[in-house]
């Protein structure tokens, strides 16, 4: 299994049981086909995405595992953030369908050939895909939600601690019964 990979690819040994290799978008399907045909890495177990906004790219990770579940191989593929489509793996792996659906919703990545890219966990979402780095959670919350009454004094923990210390100090300085 490993000899084939080492012979044909620049394999990165992360641990004795975890390997990685880099592929381009164009090489992805062919590489997957070769690996699933010639090695025992024949199961897709996870599809990850990391937003490297400062480098203007997404890094997708196709995590493969073998039938014995003893080793993992991650195929890493970088794509430009503004050109976000990938070929779907749904025909190769049935489980890719829902994984791609999630990444489509969270990062706005299109998967050509996947017919199920409708809402996943967010219903009727029309803002920036929320897992993109430019999506500001705090700004979104401030714009869409009101703070519940009675919790204002807990908004700034540092201020609250200062207030409590000042109150305790003042109580100490003021004689009881005064």
């Amino acid at each position: 299994m490993m000899s084939y990979l080492e012979e044909h690819y620049e394999l990165i040994h992360k641990t004795p049981r975890l390997f990685a290799l880099h592929v381009t978008r164009e090489q992805l399907l062919d590489t997957l086909h070769q690996i699933t045909t010639h090695t025992s890495f024949d199961t897709l177990s996870q599809l990850t995405c990391t937003d490297w906004i400062e480098e203007e790219r997404f890094e997708l990770g196709y995590m493969l595992t073998n039938a014995l579940r003893s080793h993992n191989l991650m195929l890493k593929c970088s794509i430009a953030r503004d050109k976000v489509t990938m070929p779907s793996l749904a025909l190769l792996f049935a489980q890719a369908e829902v994984m791609e659906r999630e990444l489509h919703e969270m990062f706005g990545i299109g998967f050509e050939g996947n017919e199920t890219l409708y809402d996943f966990a967010l219903e009727g979402w029309c803002d920036i895909p929320p897992m993109r780095r430019e999506f500001d959670t705090l700004a979104y919350v401030n714009a869409h939600y009101d703070f519940r009454e009675g919790r204002e004094d807990n908004l700034d923990v540092k201020e609250e601690i200062k207030k409590r210390k000042a109150a305790a100090k003042s109580a100490k300085e003021t004689p009881s019964g005064a």
């Binding site: 024949d42 579940r69 792996f93």
Partner: peptide, 23 residues
């Protein structure tokens, strides 16, 4: 095995897969 199932789903149909031993 190819569909990414794990746990009792695999072990319930005869595949002794458990990361505590496999990995």
């Amino acid at each position: 095995l190819r569909r990414g199932f794990s746990g009792q789903v695999l072990r319930g149909c005869g595949f002794a897969r458990d990361l505590r031993r496999d990995n």
